[in-house]
Design a protein around this nucleic acid. Sequence first.
DNA 1: CGAGCGCCACAACCATCGGTTGTACGACGT
DNA 2: ACGTCGTACAACCGATGGTTGTGGCGCTCG
Lengths: 310, 310
Amino acid sequence: MRTFVTVADTGQFQEASAVLGITQQAVSKRIAALEKELGVRLFVRSARGAAPTVDGRAFLPHARELLLAEERAAASVRPGRRALRVDVVGARLGPAGLLRDFHRARPETALDVVTLFDADTAVAAVRSGTVDATFRAVRTRLPGGLRAARVFDEPVQLLTGPRHQLAGARSVTPAQLAGHRIWMPGLVAGTEWAAYYTALAAEFGLTIDSVGPDFGSEALLDTLAGSASLATLVAEGIRLVWPRGHDLRRIPLTDPTPVYPHSLVWDATNAHPALAALRAHLSERPAARPSSRAWTPAWAVRGAFPAGHP
Amino acid sequence: MRTFVTVADTGQFQEASAVLGITQQAVSKRIAALEKELGVRLFVRSARGAAPTVDGRAFLPHARELLLAEERAAASVRPGRRALRVDVVGARLGPAGLLRDFHRARPETALDVVTLFDADTAVAAVRSGTVDATFRAVRTRLPGGLRAARVFDEPVQLLTGPRHQLAGARSVTPAQLAGHRIWMPGLVAGTEWAAYYTALAAEFGLTIDSVGPDFGSEALLDTLAGSASLATLVAEGIRLVWPRGHDLRRIPLTDPTPVYPHSLVWDATNAHPALAALRAHLSERPAARPSSRAWTPAWAVRGAFPAGHP
DNA sequence: CGAGCGCCACAACCATCGGTTGTACGACGT
DNA sequence: ACGTCGTACAACCGATGGTTGTGGCGCTCG
């Protein structure tokens, strides 16, 4: 590919070979091999050099893209100065949206988004330097050198099918959910997600049930749509693949509103320039502050808020 | 890359080797070589298989993207059923915008945009089947089997610096340009672009000058910004890299408005499914019809309009 | 708790690939 | 008509990347 692009740019095999530091014959062989593999002629050879055919012209941008993709791939793991690497708890949750904003604001900044197993794993990764930051709800005291800023309180909503008893409500209080069956397959014990919902259930006397195999959100939505007794909880920001004709309802929870407390955790000694940019970007947003009408587990308050918060 | 992705998907070297049709040892060697080249460990090996490290997780989406890019590249020239290939006269002109619309409306349709030398070359390419369609201003009678539909009349505007005599005008008539020097470096004799501007100059007595080397649009704009006597003509839709502080002016031409008559040309015997989709997409737009206040060269009227036009 | 099993890494070997040098051929300009 | 420029073909050879064979390590299970 690189040979192809170089030939296209220089206009002749000879000069391309000089650029690439190989012989002209090697370039000729490479191009011939590529043409044979693709089954089309890419250049018309003349006594004055090589000009791309129509196929070659169509192929050229794809070849360039391939080289760029290779460069990005290598940059994502380059020891020392790799791309900024951020862990998020879920690709469709609030923090992922914050990262999309950041990427839109600074598209030149190379950014990798990964999802680790749980908050403890993520915090350990931040500490070891394998990731630069993580959006998580921190439960435990952070190891020395790590900083946290609570950046996003994401309200939790009830999701029901049309036949559910609460389907018509404009809003519901957590206490009203007592006695209803909340079904959340895929909740893995030991993760901070599970801890959050366990605390929520304990606080308001709910029954949260995560038994059964997790067939993915589509299967969950299918089941909800047909059930009069099952409901689930989802984060407000989550974008579901909204099935047609299922008539599912998202119902806000109020008085209090359970919010999921996303914090950004990073290592104070990490000098990655894009990390500073990310923190600056996040602090430019209106700071998320705990509302008196919001609820979080007791452990969440340990997550530090940006300066100015009590 | 394919080996890496396969290992990540299967979770073990052994099964990946079966999928790829090679031995486990070859997979081991490939991954080891990749890790050595990148300088990082991508998998943690255990007695139950291989799990990606944090680096591996970050690398994975890039590796997938690379494979997709390779597939798209191959598809762009696959003999027989390649991607729809359309020639446009310029990437920043109206037809390129139409193609962007089409791509937005049908993102699943593989689409390649190329730019050939001139209309005759493009028409020959359509006839030979190396491109599926071209947006061009057709001057000559089309070879048998080819069809044309005038899809976009693009108004031409005057571009001047702030010190130019016409800089303050809200609009200008072509006749008013007589005597002013119009500078259009890069206009290649023999192309339909050149023919268009030649006809325009002849019709209204203009002086269009394309001598001198073409250093690109940036250099042109720099020169225009500082000149009181030079101006150029640009298509309305063209997106220039608008230099800061140059205070350039785009001035509409009126009474009549010269328009550049883009037609879509295709081969009636070409059965490419995406070609039909493109034509359908274009015909859904409000048909471009020649206004009595618009001007085109006499030869342009030969370009067929969609059904219904006189 | 030890034996067995499943999985990966290392070693030796070998065919193929992809580079080299040397040369031929065609087009263009003088 | 002949040098010059640029590419293609041929012969050659080392490096690459596959194979088979084997060893080690960590689960798991009797």
